[in-house]
Simulated assay, not measured.
Amino acid sequence: MVDTTRTPGAELQRLVDIMQRLRAQDGCPWDREQDLRSLRPYLLEEAFEVLEEMDRVGYGGSWRTFCEELGDLLFQIVFHAQLGAELGEFTMADVAGAISDKLISRHPHVFGGLGGVDGAEQVLANWAKLKAEERKKKTGSEGSVLDGVPVAAPALMRAERLTEKASRIGFDWPDLASVRGKLAEELDELDEAIASGDRDAIEHELGDVLFSLANLARFIKAPAEDALRMAIRRFTTRFQHIESQLRAEGVPFGEAKLEHMERHWQVAKQQEKSLPPPAWLPRAAVSTLRFQVADLPAQRAFWDALAPRLGWSTGKPHPDSASYGNGALRVVFEAGKPGVAPPAGGALILTLEAPSLRAVERLGAALEEARPGTGAELREGRLTFRDPAGLVWEYATSTG
């Protein structure tokens, strides 16, 4: 259960105060000895531990452990901010303020009163333009759209991010078939290089194949780095099963035949398939939900008031439609006859995910005060209400 009595600001200030105490003259000797160079491995280690916990959560692991690892990573950020403060360079407030200012300036469709955008692709395109404008103000040059991808990032991740950034200004394949065709072309060229025996040519063509695979991964929205990490996880689990079975059978180390190990490998694969599915899986992105409504003005008035409370933006005004969204989901209401009929046995209920139980309670109170005719019902952390078009909505946490 989320503790709503503690606020992010107060707890972050407490962490900053603890860090200052650790670095004080009478603080912790180890913390006092650290500098930017010595902290590098710890920052990387904590970031990778967060990534591991993200993977575990995806397979039904504990969100609480994930929370703890995020705290360890946050401590590294606070530690670096303290070093900056001691030198008079910047403080933790500057770090938080800078990213807040950046997010506001790069989301004019949310904070700038410019109205909505037509989906996530337009958001990314606008982001690239705004970054270029920022670079020009700072350096006098727009620089490259590829700037900002760390050279030290894992190569597969970097390849995918580079192609993504290039796509934001239109440098991209037109469709999935073209991307897949390019991969086939690169595989043919790799086969030719292998046949030639030229090591330089093999390395060159293998690099092109891996780059094409990373681009394909971006196109099908299955990050190559994540996919490979999960494949490594499966390989490790299966191979350790082989080792365990060979030890149980008394087979001396290194003396098992390939056919023997392959049998155990296949058993491990079958065991994986027999396991229950993960408790949580990433949701597929939903672009647009479109409804025809009989009374568009009433629907617009209702959702114009409700959208800000959900953290949604309102689309550009149009006489025949009204749109609202949060960057991942867009809901459009169009003038016309109602297009949603309740299925047999009950009403269609559309569920929106709430960030917390407190958010559910706040929205329920707001609807009760401003829109008493919605038939809003709050029960067990789940809010159900009806809009003017008769659509039934549910607002609840993912665990509600």
Rank of each mutant, 00 (worst) to 15 (best):
123 V>H: 10
125 A>K: 15
59 Y>N: 02
88 G>V: 10
64 R>Y: 10
117 V>G: 03
60 G>Y: 09
168 R>M: 14
96 A>K: 00
139 T>E: 11
84 G>S: 14
129 K>L: 11
145 V>W: 04
138 K>R: 12
132 A>W: 03
162 L>F: 09
101 D>M: 08
115 G>T: 07
106 R>P: 01
102 K>P: 00
90 F>T: 06
146 L>S: 03
155 A>H: 15
124 L>A: 06
61 G>K: 09
163 T>M: 11
58 G>W: 03
141 S>T: 11
109 H>M: 06
155 A>K: 12
124 L>R: 02
158 R>C: 14
122 Q>D: 11
99 I>M: 09
78 V>L: 04
135 R>T: 06
74 L>E: 10
83 L>N: 00
111 F>I: 02
76 Q>G: 11
91 T>R: 05
78 V>W: 08
128 A>G: 04
62 S>K: 03
93 A>P: 01
67 C>K: 03
107 H>I: 01
136 K>I: 10
119 G>M: 04
77 I>M: 14
141 S>P: 01
92 M>G: 00
91 T>S: 15
78 V>F: 11
92 M>H: 13
166 A>S: 13
123 V>R: 02
108 P>N: 00
110 V>Y: 03
84 G>T: 04
102 K>C: 01
139 T>W: 11
57 V>H: 07
65 T>H: 13
158 R>E: 05
68 E>P: 01
168 R>H: 13
140 G>F: 04
122 Q>M: 10
97 G>V: 02
69 E>D: 07
133 E>S: 14
92 M>R: 04
162 L>I: 14
105 S>C: 13
102 K>G: 01
110 V>M: 09
99 I>V: 12
139 T>R: 11
64 R>M: 10
97 G>Q: 10
117 V>R: 07
140 G>H: 06
89 E>Y: 15
69 E>S: 12
121 E>V: 15
118 D>N: 07
